[in-house]
Design a binder for these strands. Structure first.
Length: 104
DNA sequence: GTGTTGACTTCGT
DNA sequence: GACGAAGCCAACA
């Protein structure tokens, strides 16, 4: 397998997520052509996240924002999503309403 | 080249 | 509904 192809695919999918929308790790992996590689997506983001890649728009399948290895951590990630218009269903604003804010 | 780890997912108990 | 184990793929030691 060509690792560059995997990274490029993931990058392309994540960059394709519009503001106010989110995608799950599973969705990103599947859309990139690697269904089940949800962990690989997270690992790739963690080590090789790019400024052009809105990794904060990638959340877990439950809607939880998950982790964020950038400034502010998951807190900043959540706030940024709200600023973009993402709807949060949880009172603590830790869970995204996938039925509304999920990228289609 | 092999083994372990990691921002996860999903099934089974 | 909650907990545990297995599996996906790539990067690092």
């Amino acid at each position: 397998m060509n690792t560059t192809d995997f990274k490029s695919a993931i990058h392309t999918v994540v960059k394709g997520i519009p503001a106010g929308k989110v995608m799950t790790y599973s969705d990103v992996a599947a859309t990139a052509g690697f269904p089940g590689a949800s962990r690989a997506v997270g690992s790739l983001m963690r080590k090789n996240y790019d400024s052009s890649i809105p990794c904060h728009r990638v959340v877990k399948s439950d809607g939880l924002v998950g982790q964020y290895n950038r400034e502010g951590g998951s807190c900043s990630k959540t706030e940024r999503l709200q600023a973009e218009g993402v709807i949060f269903k949880d009172e603590l604003q830790k869970r995204v309403d996938l039925s509304i804010s999920r990228c289609v």
